[in-house]
């Protein structure tokens, strides 16, 4: 039970970063980006190329992949989403589905279907209070916590973070408060891309690198963001932990391969009983 809870926390912690990316993008751009899974995959393979193929240590490889993915996301937005911006959320969502297929298959084309792993040294797992932990899990905890603290500071203490929240809150008021939304949108994509890249590397470390690695997490990540309240960064964090722990704990009562049903049920239950999520605000149509 304790072990399962711990594993659930790790699964949840891995999802906090992509869930935060989903929630930031939704807040500012008002559409659910279903390409986040494939974006994580592509970024993980970028880090893999630098780490396993060029021999970089994983940390700088991840940092470089994060910067590259952030920049790539700005480019992707420019060619894919920007021309469709006035067409509404559904169009953008469908575009993101298509983009996801393309990105995932680029990764498949480049690296094939077989599972690969990062070049990191294996360390013996250790035990604390009967819970087995390994080094990768500790790295995951540390990196995700640090990223969440940085994001919190960015969103509350920096002018750009405040501007992102302002645009998410009320885009037309943001304009008359002098906020240039194209700039805010570019920063949002850059930050989301970096979060997705780090998330992708963490998934690759936890499991293995394979083309569907990111999209496997898609439903859980969306369940986390919806549970927390789309658009709420704190909600994404709490939602990811809850979905992670509940999914893992469910394996105590249902066969493990039904685990994926948990986030799906969660989405259904939340949308019926509390569509705004835990920390979201009811949507008011103006």
């Amino acid at each position: 039970m304790l072990q399962t809870t711990f594993n659930g926390i790790i699964t949840g912690v891995i999802m906090t970063l992509p869930a935060l990316a989903v929630t930031l993008l939704f807040g500012v751009l008002k559409f659910p980006n279903f390409a986040v899974g494939a974006m994580m995959t592509v970024a993980a393979y970028m880090a893999f190329a630098l780490n396993a193929q060029l021999g970089w240590p994983l940390l700088p490889a991840t940092a470089a992949a994060a910067l590259a993915m952030g920049t790539l996301c700005i480019g992707i937005d420019h060619v894919t989403f920007k021309p469709l911006r006035e067409r509404g959320g559904i169009t953008l969502m469908v575009a993101s589905l298509g983009l996801g297929f393309i990105l995932e298959n680029i990764a498949r084309f480049a690296y094939g279907n077989s599972a690969r792993s990062f070049a990191i040294e294996l360390a013996r797992p250790f035990r604390i209070a009967d819970v087995r932990m390994n080094q990768e899990q500790m790295i995951t905890l540390g990196v995700s916590t640090a990223a969440m603290i940085l994001m919190y500071l960015l969103l509350t203490r920096s002018p750009m973070g405040r501007a992102m929240r302002a645009v998410a809150d009320n885009p037309s008021l943001a304009l008359v408060r002098g906020i240039e939304s194209p700039r805010v949108i570019r920063w949002t994509w850059f930050i989301a891309g970096m979060l997705l890249a780090v998330g992708g590397v963490l998934i690759g470390m936890d499991r293995a690198l394979e083309p569907p690695m990111g999209s496997n997490y898609l439903i859980s990540v969306f369940a986390a963001a919806i549970l927390g309240g789309l658009g709420s960064p704190l909600g994404a964090f709490v939602g990811a932990l809850v979905i992670g722990v509940v999914s893992e704990l469910s394996t105590l009562v249902v066969p493990p391969n039904y685990r994926i049903g948990v986030p799906l049920c969660a989405i259904a239950v939340i949308l019926i009983f509390r569509p705004q999520g835990l920390f979201g605000h009811p949507y008011i149509r103006k």
Partner: peptide
């Protein structure tokens, strides 16, 4: 809808100061 409702009073003022 003439204030950012999810932001604090201070943050609303800061945004105005920073961007206007």
């Amino acid at each position: 809808y003439n204030v950012f409702r999810n932001l604090t009073v201070l943050e609303n003022l800061q945004i105005a100061r920073e961007f206007m």
